[in-house]
Amino acid sequence: MDELERIREEIDLDRRRFVKKVLGGVIGGSLLLVLPAGAVKVAQQISGLAAGTDPVDPDRKFAFVIDITGCIGCGYCCVADKNEFQVPDGYYRTWVERYVIDDQDNVHVDAPRGGLDGYATARLDIPHPVRDTFFVPKLCNMCEKPSCVQVCPVGATFRTADGFVLIDRQRCLGCSYCVQACPYSVRFIGPESRVAEKCTWCYHRLAQGLRPACVEACPVQARKFGDLNDRESEVYRLLHEPNVISVLKPEMGNEPSLHYLGLRREVV
């Protein structure tokens, strides 16, 4: 109760300072600012999963959907990911690419530091007027036919019954054959662990009923995660409505479970 009082007083103090500023004319113009209409969506939890439940459940078919039209390139997903897995510098479990298309149809792509620092500044090296820009977050595609599992010589990378491609860190040789085989370049050999590492769609969070860290961190819900066998889930709806939706490099035949809403032909 004391703590609550203290916070309340603090907020009141803030308000008094603020009122002073308003009355002093410092922030007068702010009153012309207009607010957006409409309620903000509240994040949905993954139902039925909690600590103690068996993480492998073949009745679930998880899918990841990334809304390219929604991503604002803040890079906070990458920050959350780096915090969650303490990813070493220079290696990326997930990253966000920036696509800039100029009016000569040249495509300029970059991802400095994998987008960890966001994209607060414009690219200055583009010679023509910019016609279009967008961001593309990348992470493990959780293929139904994963090349990495195919090539792992010792079965240290494997696909679980519910479709997660995971790495057995106790048995990985660090031969990096899987790194070579992944068409999406989501794997790396950890400089400290010296075994293969990659995005797991936060398998460990899921086991606690939590959504993947990057999904949780996305302020605009451009990253969506859910169970395709749950007809109420957003991913089910998105994948079954007539949306512009596709996967990366379909010609590889890996059948990713990672889908992109509004995927553009420039994206590789």
Partner: peptide, 10 residues
């Protein structure tokens, strides 16, 4: 192996 992964610290 999948339990090892599931037991990673959140």
């Amino acid at each position: 192996a999948e339990l090892d992964e599931a037991n990673r610290t959140v």
